[in-house]
């Protein structure tokens, strides 16, 4: 790519208006061309600075091992946390069970209703008595023995024989 082409694309690059392919081409050229980078610096120092930053990637031989070790550690931690959670639930359930048991034991109970056997009083069936009032009318009155207030009376045709 020529520097002249880059100069033509410079305004569009600064206005964030370049197509993606052209943008990548532009960036690749400016990274390697100090003169074009100087031009870009004149237009926008921040954009020029971004392209002048070192591209070298930090290398670290132990990084991968450390990541894998971190993964294993997290796995162990999660497993322990899961076990802890299970034991905590079991302990909570046991505690609840014991508490319920104790509460049941100490709960004030309502005594069962006591049934007192009373001697059955033989009810005396009152003997009917007959009273005759007037002619041709019979009045039968039945009165229980103990309860003077209760009276049953009925009138029967004299033709009917009891």
């Amino acid at each position: 790519m020529s520097c002249g082409k880059v100069c033509g694309w410079l305004p569009a690059y600064v206005a964030l208006g370049l197509g993606e392919d052209e943008r990548q081409e532009f960036r690749a050229h400016v990274r390697g061309c100090q003169e074009c980078r100087r031009l870009l610096w004149q237009e926008d120092p921040a954009l020029a600075m971004a392209l002048a930053l070192p591209a070298a990637e930090p290398t670290d031989g132990h990084f991968v091992e450390e990541v894998l070790a971190g993964i294993h550690q997290r796995r162990v931690e999660k497993s322990l946390a899961r076990k802890k959670r299970v034991w905590r639930r079991v302990a909570a359930a046991a505690f609840l069970f014991l508490a319920l048991g104790l509460a049941y034991e100490r709960w004030p109970r309502v005594p069962p209703p006591t049934v007192v056997a009373t001697p059955v009083q033989e009810k005396l069936v009152p003997e009917p008595f007959v009273e005759v009032e007037g002619e041709g009318v019979r009045v039968y009155q039945l009165v229980s023995e103990g309860e003077a207030r209760t009276q049953v009376a009925f009138i029967v045709s004299p033709a009917v024989e009891l």
């Binding site: 990637e57 990084f63 991968v64 894998l68």
Partner: peptide, 11 residues
């Protein structure tokens, strides 16, 4: 994957 991308992610 870690080996391939560690540089970019760290940067």
């Amino acid at each position: 994957l870690v080996k391939r991308h560690q540089g970019g992610v760290r940067r």
